[in-house]
């Protein structure tokens, strides 16, 4: 192992250490406190956990590149809901009536297109107006959610296509369809961020925007692309989830943005941009899902789960800050 690798490994591996700790803790605690006699580390339980991580996880990959780029997107929950509405409702449109099961790819495309368009709207506004992404997406979060309610009022939008449900519930090599989507998205985004020009430039812009401009990088298009990617992923997350559930409530996806950001931050991505890791985000997503599931396993209720996750988030960021401060002082001397 070359010099410097170990410290990098420790830093990027910290979240995975936390995941392992959780596994051990819940396995042991589960023995004494669980209401069920099933072990926490049961294979089926773990596969289910991966599947349940997918909706947040897929969006979190997009949020990681947005945040590395120095922005944030609060509208992902609303994009998620609106794409879901488009997905389920379009399957009932009379113009697609003759398509049979071929309506599935058409509806998927429509839903994904919805995400792309909404993301592009966010990106264009951020690029062209120069308004902070936090403000822009706060506005679009409200606006997009408004569209969801305009679509069907307070009523859920429902449609079950059994072919689709079969697909969504399928397991290939043991992993559920949703898990495969999460895996593929993680891999693709990881490649984008580490191996492509776009990824490199997004890093540079997030770390030092002025230096990036001085190097002749066009900042705006990169920002736009990232918002399109996260819009697409929010829609993909909806496609994966609602293909199975078949019913979307107008309030679905609320607070998703916060869960996603929590996962990304737990994974070590800086809010200020410039640094972050796709794989660590995956760790952050799994850590949160493990906490939710594990605390449930030992009999805690939802309120307790939220309280604990909140405390852990602050503790982790505090630790991170202390470690970074120490590093900076070392640099100074």
């Amino acid at each position: 192992m070359k010099a410097g690798k170990l410290s990098t490994f420790l830093k990027s591996g910290a979240i995975w250490g936390f995941v392992v700790l959780e596994l051990i803790f819940f396995s042991v605690a589960g023995e004494f406190m669980s209401l069920s006699n099933k072990a926490f580390m049961d294979l089926d339980n773990m596969l289910l956990l991966l599947k349940q991580s997918a909706p947040i996880g897929i969006i979190a990959m997009g949020m990681t590149i947005i945040m590395i780029n120095g922005n944030i997107d609060l509208s992902v929950g609303a994009i998620f809901a609106l794409s879901a509405v488009v997905l389920l409702d379009s399957m009932t449109w009379t113009m697609f009536a003759g398509l049979g099961d071929w309506v599935i790819p058409v509806s998927w495309l429509l839903a994904l297109l919805t995400g792309v368009v909404l993301g592009a709207i966010n990106g264009l506004i951020v690029w062209k107006t120069g308004v902070d992404a936090f403000i822009v997406t706060l506005g679009s979060m409200l606006g997009f959610r408004g569209l969801v309610f305009m679509y069907n009022g307070e009523n859920p939008t429902s449609y079950l296509n059994w072919t689709l449900v079969d697909f969504a519930e399928a397991q290939f090599l043991g992993l559920h369809t949703a898990t495969w989507f999460l895996a593929v998205v993680t891999l693709v985004i990881w490649y984008v961020m580490t191996r492509t020009v776009h990824g490199r430039n997004a890093h540079a812009i997030g770390d030092n925007r002025e230096a990036a401009v001085n190097a002749g990088i066009r900042v705006g298009p990169h920002i736009l692309i990232n918002f399109i990617i996260i819009g697409f992923l929010a829609a993909l997350s909806a496609v994966v989830f609602y293909s199975e559930s078949g019913s979307v409530n107008p309030n679905d996806g609320q607070l998703y943005e916060l869960w996603v950001i929590t996962a990304v931050v737990l994974g070590g991505t800086k809010l200020a941009g410039g640094s972050g890791s796709i794989l660590s985000t995956l760790g952050g997503v799994l850590a949160i899902q493990l906490l939710r599931k594990g605390l449930g396993h030992i009999g805690a209720d939802t309120e307790t789960v939220n309280l604990v996750i909140g405390l852990i988030l602050i503790a982790v960021l505090f630790l991170d800050r202390q470690l970074n401060l120490k590093g900076k002082e070392e640099l100074k001397t």
Partner: peptide, 24 residues
């Protein structure tokens, strides 16, 4: 530091920053 370099990036990435679009 403020305008010329992306301090968190490595030496190679900084040096090729303006031209990676052509190095693909």
């Amino acid at each position: 530091k403020g305008q010329g370099l992306v301090l968190g990036m490595n030496c190679r990435d900084n040096m090729t920053l303006p031209q990676i679009g052509d190095l693909t």
